[in-house]
């Protein structure tokens, strides 16, 4: 039986890198899609609004694990075999898009209605209103909850081993199977997650405090 030493720790560190990479890709893809869905959700076209609403409702009402399975097996069913990295990021992005869309919809709606009216009166198109007036303000409001969601995402990447991806949690499981020192191994794994998530949580809280201070100003 091997013990839990440097090589194992380095393996965990490397897997932490994979977890981070996966988080970044899923967040980027999901963010782009989520932004689009948020704007669809607020569109003047009822069909677009309805599609966005349904998407958000459904994804937020099923486990992330099922989102992973469904996207993974769904694609396989169409005969598309994806490498684990792509499968994992794409299916996580499906989940990310729904949550970010809902968060950002709230932030866009938090921009006062008068900002829409004033910019419309200045003859801006709807796109220009978003681009120059609404989004810059919405983005400022959205920072704290977005960073907060990033913490959820990092934690939720821990289940991607179901589509064959070896992330930090999976690496911990593998090492534990080899050395059978669950307390040691999972303490280190938990600590690595904590080191990523805790600063993000604090950042989210700090940003929120700053935003509230500005508001009550």
């Amino acid at each position: 039986m091997t013990s839990f030493g440097w090589p194992e720790f380095l393996f965990l560190l490397r897997s932490t890198g994979w977890t981070l990479l996966l988080t970044v890709i899923a967040f980027t893809l999901g963010g782009v899609a989520g932004g689009g869905i948020a704007i669809m959700r607020l569109s003047r076209n009822p069909v677009l609004r309805w599609i966005a609403m349904l998407y958000i409702l459904v994804i937020q009402s099923i486990p992330v694990l099922m989102v992973l399975f469904m996207s993974y097996y769904g694609l396989t069913l169409f005969g598309i075999e994806l490498p684990p990295t792509v499968a994992a990021s794409a299916s996580l992005a499906v989940y990310v898009a729904a949550y970010l869309a809902e968060i950002w919809r709230g932030c866009i709606q938090a921009v006062p209605k008068q900002q829409w009216e004033a910019s419309a009166s200045l003859a801006l198109t709807r796109f220009e209103q978003y681009r120059y007036v609404i989004l810059p303000q919405a983005i400022r409001i959205s920072l704290p909850p977005t960073v907060g969601f990033l913490v959820q995402l990092v934690k939720n990447t821990s289940i991607v081993s179901v589509v064959g991806f070896t992330d930090l949690a999976r690496a911990g499981q593998l090492i534990n199977q080899a050395v059978f020192k669950p307390f040691q191994v999972f303490t280190v794994v938990a600590a690595l997650y904590f080191v990523i998530c805790f600063p993000l949580s604090r950042l989210s809280r700090y940003l929120e405090g700053r935003l509230n201070a500005r508001r009550s100003h």
Partner: peptide, 19 residues
């Protein structure tokens, strides 16, 4: 609270089940 909120549920589950 901070420990639980900043680590994945899966790892907590492993810790309890295996540890």
């Amino acid at each position: 609270v901070e420990l639980m909120r900043n680590t994945p549920f899966l790892v907590q589950l492993f810790m309890i089940f295996f540890g």
